[in-house]
């Protein structure tokens, strides 16, 4: 029977769901054995909830849009370039940036689990981890793109990159036209998370939200 979260007459503390209790049990056992530091767990959660997210990726994209030497270096060795900016993989993975052009549109997926460029995009959204996306991105990428509201010219090739525990990809979206005079901050607002996964395009300046 589900607990009613608004029931103030509860005589005892609300019992967390079963998996939450299983996690608590693991934590307790490992802490008692001295194998983990509970404070380190809080720090990791804080990092992923508040410090790491798609703004990191947008920063890299805007640098690439505005500095061609940076872009060349990024496409050649993304791991080294983004590490210098402080965006390094905590799991020791290799980063690869793939550039969208008029001829080729890139999309990323992890068909086996949910490998994702955490340092640049944070934690993946639920749809990225779903069976549906993981299966369909490779099989019918154009249909998946259209579900995301993206339609590309027929002659634009779509290339799908399958991430692994060792290699994570980031898409470098095309810079929208009419953005030549925009500031870095304004440019960053055009770079959405989905545009860096390849399931979206960078926003047009006239459609940019606040």
């Amino acid at each position: 029977m589900p607990h009613d979260h608004h029931d103030h007459d509860h005589p005892h503390a609300l019992l967390p769901p079963d998996p939450a209790l299983r996690v608590k049990a693991l934590e307790t056992v490992l802490t008692r054995k001295g194998l983990i530091d509970p404070q380190a767990l809080d720090a990791i959660i804080d990092t992923y909830e508040n410090r790491i997210g798609p703004r990191n990726g947008a920063d890299v994209v805007v640098r690439a849009w505005t500095d061609s030497a940076f872009k060349q270096a990024l496409l050649q060795d993304a791991t080294a370039v983004v590490s210098k900016l402080g965006y390094y993989g905590r799991q020791g993975e290799h980063m690869v940036v793939v550039e969208n052009t008029d001829q080729t549109h890139n999309m990323i997926v992890c068909t086996l689990c949910s490998c994702y460029p955490w340092p640049l995009l944070g934690i993946p959204p639920a749809w990225y981890k779903s069976d549906a996306y993981r299966a369909r991105a490779v099989r019918e990428p154009r249909k998946v793109l259209s579900d995301f509201g993206v339609s590309l010219p027929e002659d634009t090739a779509i290339r799908v990159w399958d991430s692994t525990a060792e290699i994570r990809y980031l898409v470098l979206p095309q810079r929208p036209p009419g953005t030549e005079d925009m500031s870095r901050t304004d440019l960053m607002s055009l770079v959405t998370r989905d545009s860096m996964i390849g399931t979206g395009l960078a926003r047009s300046p006239d459609k940019a939200g606040p």
């Binding site: 939450a20 380190a40 767990l41 959660i45 992923y48 934690i123």
Partner: peptide, 9 residues
């Protein structure tokens, strides 16, 4: 969040 952090740690 807890199980994610535990694994990463």
């Amino acid at each position: 969040a807890q199980v994610f952090a535990l694994t990463v740690h």
